[in-house]
């Protein structure tokens, strides 16, 4: 694969809990990826930045319960802009097992739960990105 994997990370909406997403941001950067973290943003801003920065991966963090509502809006807008086939969409945070399944059904490529290991996250991102590029 050519160049660095480019990742956009964001807190979804007004969620106040950012320990997880900052940890992931640092870890992905340490793993050699280019990471852009834009803090608290709504789906529309996230999609706009993703297009503008032409990223490979969009990761959003939600621990405040709005994963289905705002996560759903994010995927909807990604589809409208034709990004779903170009970019990987990941969501991390606090979800019930049923909601984790639901998030995959609505179109997230990966769902990251509390306790996910550093290597797990980085390597699954690499795999997803390379399989998408090959295809």
């Amino acid at each position: 694969m050519e160049g660095k994997v480019k990742v956009l990370l964001s807190k979804l909406g007004l969620d106040v809990h950012n320990r997880g997403v900052i940890t992931v941001a640092k870890e992905l950067r340490d793993a050699g990826m280019e990471v852009i973290y834009i803090g608290n943003s709504l789906p529309k801003e996230i999609i706009e930045t993703a297009i503008q920065e032409d990223v490979d991966v969009v990761g959003v963090s939600s621990l405040g319960g709005a994963h289905l509502t705002l996560g759903g809006l994010l995927i909807e807008q990604a589809k409208q802009k034709g990004l779903k086939d170009r970019m990987i969409f990941l969501i991390g945070g606090v979800f019930s097992p049923a909601d984790a399944v639901r998030l995959q059904q609505i179109g997230f490529d990966g769902v990251v739960s509390p306790g996910a290991a550093r290597e797990e996250i980085a390597s699954s991102i690499r795999e997803m990105v390379s399989s998408r590029i090959v295809r």
């Binding site: 909406g13 405040g64 319960g65 709005a66 509502t69 705002l70």
Partner: peptide, 11 residues
Amino acid sequence: EPISTGQVGMS
């Protein structure tokens, strides 16, 4: 407010 979309009454 638009910024509150989808988050009202959560947590």
